[in-house]
């Protein structure tokens, strides 16, 4: 299929982009990497009247250190994150997750901001940011604001972004010496959206863990924190953590697998990811 007709505007500044978003409130979409959006356009699942292309806004791109935070511009391509030494050092969870995202040609074009704003519940990056206690920087008609990842993902493909908002950057606390992270997912084929996946962070606590954050994807409308399991894992009780997942997540049947299978796989992932975190050496 070919997309329905739409207009195109290439924003020359962030303010211009925000202004363009305001012109046709219902029919405007921001074009970032386009790796999800253009597929939906091609299938006429989405028929905006105007696309506002922010690929020319170089100020939205790049990875930099800002004291104890890593700041990733929204338009930073996924491939840059995958290859970045700063990411590997300061946010190793992202380095672990990136190779699971689609395929090289997609990662060359896809952006971190696009993935976060699109908020596919089976995508890796929203869960990673949730696990990393990231903050999402947003610019809108009334200025700039910051939203915690925990508060950003509101529902199925629904976020804290308003109709005239532009996601500009992601702020991630840099990993300290006791930082631990783990990532794994079950996908039928490399690069597929996962049946279920888990992004996790914690701090080393002797041989154990504390401040555990478990963010599942593919099990709900948004990344889902497994808060009971987090507590159990911090208490050193992996079996209890796995058992308590039934109260933490409520996956639904989909065309690949049913809820019971997803629930089981979530437990398998927890054991594997916990092992990654407890076996890691600083």
């Amino acid at each position: 299929m070919k997309p329905a007709p739409f207009g195109y505007a290439k924003a020359r500044s962030l303010d211009e982009a925000i202004g363009l978003l305001g012109q046709q409130p219902d029919g405007v979409k921001l074009l970032a990497g386009g790796q999800s959006l253009i597929a939906t356009l091609n299938m006429r699942l989405s028929e905006p009247r105007l696309l506002v292309d922010i690929n020319g806004l170089h100020e939205l791109s790049g990875i930099r250190l800002d004291n104890d935070h890593l700041v990733i511009g929204a338009m930073t391509r996924q491939v840059e994150i995958e290859r970045s030494a700063d990411i590997a050092r300061h946010a190793p969870l992202l380095a672990k997750a990136l190779p699971h995202i689609a395929h090289p040609a997609i990662r060359n074009r896809g952006t971190i901001g696009g993935s976060i704003a699109f908020a596919d519940p089976a995508a890796e990056l929203p869960a990673c940011l949730t696990a990393l206690s990231a903050e999402i920087e947003i610019a809108g008609p009334s200025g700039k604001r910051t939203v915690r990842a925990d508060d950003f993902f509101k529902g199925l493909f629904e976020t804290a972004l308003g109709p005239q908002d532009v996601l500009t950057a992601i702020r991630i606390p840099t990993a300290l010496a006791d930082h631990r992270c783990g990532f794994d997912e079950f996908a039928r084929r490399l690069g597929d959206y996962a049946i279920v996946g888990l992004a996790a962070t914690a701090r080393a606590n002797g041989a154990g863990l504390k401040d555990v954050r478990l963010a599942y994807f593919g099990v709900g409308a948004t990344p889902v924190r497994a808060s009971r399991a987090e507590v159990a894992l911090a208490a050193g009780d992996l079996d209890k953590a796995v058992a308590s997942l039934s109260g933490d997540i409520d996956p639904q049947d989909d065309v690949q697998e049913n809820a019971a299978v997803k629930q089981h796989l979530a437990g398998v992932l927890l054991r594997r990811v916990a092992k990654q975190m407890t076996e890691a050496r600083s």
Partner: peptide, 16 residues
């Protein structure tokens, strides 16, 4: 290839 890297020709607009 777009600016030296491979991309999906179906997920990139000509106008871009």
């Amino acid at each position: 290839r777009l600016n030296g890297v491979i991309v999906r020709g179906c997920l990139t607009l000509a106008v871009q």
